[in-house]
Design a protein around this nucleic acid. Structure first.
Lengths: 345, 345
DNA sequence: CTGAAAGCGCTTACAG
DNA sequence: CTGAAAGCGCTTACAG
């Protein structure tokens, strides 16, 4: 490599470029600004400056721009856990759209904890970005209003529990499809003992999915004994634990609805280990349709969500908000869910 | 929520705090600085200022700090593709360690393309961060030296093809274990027709894994016909395509080594669809040991890497570099690989 | 079409 | 122990 000394070079500033090109800093700034200059610049000057920029290897300092200017060219994302495959298509889509706009993306995990969700807001307050896309499990309209008032950030969120008039929202109508799926289990497959592995009751998404399950059971006149509702934490491991509990009951269920696919996959794995056949002895339904749902055997019957689509809607709306009006009324994207029948139920 | 008007509030500055507390801005800065002040501050002043900070709801502007001060409190990560599960434990570990240090993390995908790797460097040059952790497939020592010279950023990288004297490196000795695995296939399992699904030859990691495969085959006196080496692109889909090609050969292989687990999973899926039994008709070995390797049936035989461990080593070294000396000599972490025999071979 | 100057919100020598 | 002042590298009215 020759040198690899890595002595840090003095940073080339806009002032250096101006001097070398024999123009003022204002002129250089106008030529290099990402927002087109309001005043004309002679083509000759422009070329001269651009040449010098190349020669000196000048790169604008984004922090100085942030301080003086309006745009930070950065957006933030808050998801629950980068380890859960459900979020990847969404993250990836948002990243791609952001890069097309010349933006970088900062990512934080909330781990479904309100404390960490607030830490994210705190971080955005210290280092404001132009927009954020979040999947809030605990943050409410007031929290988001606070953040907007403090930072002026544009916000897009997943979840129809967010009703703030200036926050764009994408969500899946999971209540309806959940209800259909449980009904299918009861009426098409003849199950009468159906259990559910949920997560913390307070999550709006659990309220909806669990509510749908109860409604379907009640309407069919089927009991839901309390021991049929086991709480997990979205992880594979929690699915493994939950199914052990359920199968150890004196009167175990013949079907289980899981709050998401990773729980369902964990449940299937342990059920098989314990000698149960899926779906003959115990049927399993997941939620999300992550790619892994098609990799496991039996293939997972699940309710598909379309996270890439949600990411796309929210990212596009976000950049319209960033470039257009911060105060545009909220847009709501209802992305459909689909019940996908495979082999596990 | 009451208001939800979201009119943006005038930002509270350090100057506002100073005025309200009847002290100078310098004093406020000394009290709020994350690096302990070199001069003493009276406890009374400190309390007065901290009270005002709370009252006014002041939050320091990180961009102003970046401009004037030395630390940005941000690190960057470059991975190939956030969609590949292999990277998640590493990303997650780095994020966690970063947050413990009060740092945020910016993430970019290279998609294994040199062009996007250079775009990442460009982005870091415009918006310098204190450190980066990267998995470079194309960037070389010269590229990294350039980046260091321009920005002074601390660097940690995955891959022992990086030899820069000031870049910490973590890598897995995959050549040795790859060689062992192929040997096992030949000598313990009696395979003579062993194929490999690789990715672009130019990736150092392919050079090593493919080299190990060839060496084992040659030493056993087994031929490697050119049609036994099929190129994929790390994705499940590329594994699906590759296995079709291989099984359509007049003299198809009885065993396949894949460059990673996602390729292997795609290959297994299609082999089964085509009516082949795994491992009886066609044995499959993967690489990485992503969690999904244990979810698929048959369970995937693979070579485990420990990405969380790599992330931990690199992140810790990075923060030592950030807080201590940028010019500390490079540290090399050899993280072991392990051949995990399950059911697919 | 171009330039001089103020100012974004901090940190940090320098002075007391 | 505290303050006044310079300056980080830009953008943007203001003036010509």
């Amino acid at each position: 490599m020759g040198k690899d000394s890595a002595v840090q070079r003095e940073r080339v500033t806009m002032q250096d470029v101006a001097r070398a090109a024999n123009v003022s800093q204002s002129t250089v700034s106008r030529i290099l600004s990402p927002v087109p200059s309001r005043v004309p610049i002679s083509e000759e000057t422009r070329q001269k400056v651009l040449t010098v920029v190349k020669e000196l290897g000048y790169h604008p300092n984004q922090y100085a721009r942030n301080l003086r200017g309006k745009k930070t060219r950065m957006i933030g994302m808050m998801i629950a856990d980068i380890t859960n495959p459900f979020y990847h298509p969404m993250v990836r889509t948002v990243q791609d759209i952001a890069f097309q706009h010349g933006y970088d993306v900062m990512i934080a995990n909330s781990d479904h904890m309100r404390e960490k969700e607030l830490l994210f807001c705190e971080s955005i307050t210290r280092r404001p970005v132009d927009g954020i896309i979040i999947i809030p499990y605990h943050l409410n309209d007031d929290d988001l209003d606070n953040l907007m008032v403090n930072t002026g950030v544009a916000i897009g969120a997943v979840g129809n529990h967010i009703q703030h008039p200036y926050v764009d929202v994408a969500y899946a109508d999971d209540a309806k499809v959940s209800y259909e799926a449980v009904n299918w289990l009861i009426h098409q497959r003849g199950h009468r003992r159906v259990a559910m592995i949920i997560a913390d009751h307070r999550f709006p998404v659990i309220v909806r999915r669990y509510g749908a399950y109860r409604r379907a059971m009640e309407e069919a006149g089927l009991p839901v004994p309390p021991e049929y509702v086991v709480e997990g934490d979205w992880s594979v491991e929690s699915g493994q634990r939950a199914i052990r509990t359920l199968l150890a009951l004196p009167d175990p269920p013949t079907a289980v609805v899981a709050a998401n696919d990773t729980i369902a996959i964990g449940a299937m794995e342990v059920a098989e280990e314990l000698g149960y056949r899926v779906p003959e002895d115990i049927a399993v339904i997941g939620f999300d349709d992550i790619p892994e749902a098609q990799w496991v055997r039996p293939r997972l019957t699940t309710i598909a969500q379309f996270p890439a689509e949600m990411g796309r809607c929210l990212a596009q709306a976000l950049f319209e908000r960033i470039n257009g009006g911060q105060d545009a009324p909220r847009r709501v994207f209802e992305v459909p869910c689909r019940f996908v029948i495979r082999e596990s139920a």
